[in-house]
């Protein structure tokens, strides 16, 4: 099975490496044509304003939305969460995004870089907590009824799933823990 990583900017190689360790074929997605034959797409951490405007400029937005309607799974980490959100708080004016998930997301919700932190995250359905690396991280402030909350802190929701869409505020690609990637791969495999 082939899983793509949106390769416009950010922690691209980290996700590609993580997928390799999970035993699936990783594919860098820079152009619409690269989505061919891909079961799932990871949108990595990076700057959401940069990735969003490059997605729009190089014609990826509409193609990704179409592929999602046809059953492609998507996993957005950090900036990926912002890009998946239906509504963005503290964004730039008319910030480009996919808007696929019924969530309201606040950018840089924990403050500036010096407030970035690590903390364990207990995820629903996981035996033990995963390492959470939060870097200028966003948070989900409101979620629609179709959204399943997988983890929350006192500040808000930090992991959620809606059908074939998965998202985390933190960066599983910066840890040695493969469980969230394996979880996403199972989502991609499910019919």
């Amino acid at each position: 099975m082939k899983i793509g990583v949106l390769s416009l900017q950010g922690a691209v190689s980290e996700h590609l490496d993580q997928l390799k360790r999970c035993g699936v074929e990783p594919a860098a997605v820079k152009r619409p044509g690269d989505l061919e034959g891909i079961a799932g797409l990871i949108i990595p951490g990076g700057e959401s304003t940069t990735i969003g405007s490059l997605m729009e400029h190089f014609g990826l937005n509409e193609v990704i939305r179409e592929r999602c309607r046809a059953g492609m799974a998507v996993f957005g980490t950090c900036a990926g969460m912002v890009l998946l959100a239906r509504e963005i708080l503290d964004g730039v004016k008319d910030q480009a995004r996919l808007g696929l998930m019924d969530i309201k997301v606040r950018r840089n919700a924990f403050g500036r870089q010096k407030e970035s932190f690590e903390a364990p995250v207990a995820l629903k359905g996981f035996d033990s907590p995963v390492e959470g690396v939060f870097i200028r991280a966003p948070i989900i402030t409101a979620a629609g009824s179709g959204v399943e909350v997988l983890a929350a802190r006192e500040e808000g929701i930090v992991a959620a799933r809606q059908g074939r869409l998965l998202t985390t505020s933190f960066h599983p690609e910066l840890t040695g823990d493969l469980r969230l990637h394996l979880y996403f791969i199972r989502m991609c495999e499910a019919k």
């Binding site: 990076g46 932190f117 690396v133």
Partner: peptide
């Protein structure tokens, strides 16, 4: 339980800038 300013968080911030200007 929250650890700020770890090297992983500092280095990770730069990783999030990769491929950018």
């Amino acid at each position: 339980m929250k650890e700020q300013g770890t090297f992983r968080v500092k280095k990770g911030m730069a990783q999030m800038q990769k491929g950018g200007v």
